[in-house]
């Protein structure tokens, strides 16, 4: 019987080793271990054995069963692994083919600039104010110390609709309106972005419609050095921490003293090049201390309150920052231009 068992083991293990098919392996399991299998058949004869032989043969039989089961399991695992590998190999793809595109739009370049400036000033405690694009002559000019016969407000320069209404030429009227709203009683700390309009012929550097951001800070004891400090923070954040600023005297009817702010040219680092026309400086914005008449007209006591204001053109800033050579690009909306500035 022992020989019989060992023969079964040898034969079974050989067949297991030889097979490469899951089905055959299953058949082998039935052939040897099934209810009608050869091992079961042999074990059925156990009853005929002596008491002494029974445990010995029993042990052998168990060992044979274990070894066959074990071999089948191992083979099963091997075959399953082989089958999976085959399957995965079949599933392989060309990963260099392009993926399914995600369709994204994007912001206009001017919006990007405006929001960047808004966020910068919000971080310094400024609020963002908006106002109408069709303005009254009063808010657009008179409230800003530009009385009716002022030479700087030629009809030729503005889009008038009637004698009293025009498309605003700057966003300063929003400042006047805000001060008026605050009734001369509390500090004003605001910026006002928006569209403005002037009677310019459209060309590479002029546009009859463009964008402006102005800022206003009115409080007790606001100093000109505060203006310089704020503008420095702005310039460094916007154009790089290695930029220097310079203030030059200038003239605006609504500020006194008035200045223009230049930043050192990024291209030549102040050495002088074609971008800065050899001066080493690039003009960025106009600013100044709010004219006492403007404060008074808005209801602020100019003996108590002082303030500064500044105004800049995001179009120009975008042109400088991104090297755009024609302001009309911002308004003709050529798809090839719009898609340049984001990954759409």
């Amino acid at each position: 019987m022992k020989e019989q068992l060992e023969a079964i083991q040898t034969e079974a293990l050989e067949r297991i080793a030889e097979t490469n098919e899951m089905k055959e392996l299953q058949a082998i399991r039935v052939t040897y271990l099934g209810k009608k299998g050869s091992l079961t058949g042999v074990l059925r004869g156990m009853g005929k054995l002596s008491k002494e032989e029974r445990p010995v043969i029993g042990e052998i039989a168990n060992r044979v069963r274990e070894s066959i089961t074990d071999a089948i399991d191992r083979k099963n695992e091997t075959l399953a692994q082989q089958a999976l590998e085959k399957q995965l190999e079949k599933e392989a793809i060309d990963v260099t083919l392009p993926g399914r595109p995600v369709q994204l739009g994007g912001p206009h370049l001017l919006t990007t600039i405006v929001e960047e400036i808004e966020d910068l000033f919000i971080g310094m405690g400024f609020e963002v104010r908006e106002g109408p694009e069709v303005e009254t002559d009063y808010y657009n000019f008179e409230a800003l110390n530009l009385p009716k016969d002022h030479p700087a407000r030629d009809m030729q320069d503005s889009f008038y609709i009637t004698n009293e209404l025009l498309l605003r030429t700057h966003t300063s009227p929003v400042q006047a309106r805000t001060m008026r709203e605050y009734e001369g009683s509390k500090p004003v700390k605001m910026i006002c972005p928006g569209k403005v309009y002037r009677r310019d012929t459209d060309d590479a550097t002029h546009s009859h419609q463009f964008t402006q951001i102005e800022g206003l800070y009115v409080d007790k004891d606001v100093r000109m050095s505060d203006l310089k400090g704020i503008l420095d923070v702005f310039a460094k954040k916007m154009f790089g921490y290695d930029r220097e600023i310079r203030l030059r005297p200038s003239f605006f009817p609504f500020t006194e003293p008035s200045v223009e702010m230049d930043i050192s040219c990024k291209v030549c680092n102040g050495e002088g090049c074609s971008v800065c026309k050899g001066t080493g400086w690039i003009e960025i914005l106009g600013a100044g201390m709010v004219h006492p008449k403007v404060l008074e007209m808005a209801g602020y006591d100019a003996n108590v309150y002082t303030g500064f204001a500044f105004g800049m053109g995001p179009d120009r800033i975008a042109m400088l920052k991104y090297g755009v050579d024609d302001i009309r690009q911002f308004y003709t909306n050529d798809r090839r231009f719009l898609t340049q500035y984001h990954n759409a």
């Binding site: 808004e118 405690g125 400024f126 409080d219 400090g229």
Partner: peptide
């Protein structure tokens, strides 16, 4: 000379800036 003006930040009470 504006170059000789110091750089300062306003002394006034600070307010929270935020979008409406």
């Amino acid at each position: 000379g504006y170059d000789n003006l110091p750089y300062t930040l306003p002394n006034g009470a600070s307010q929270a800036g935020a979008l409406t």
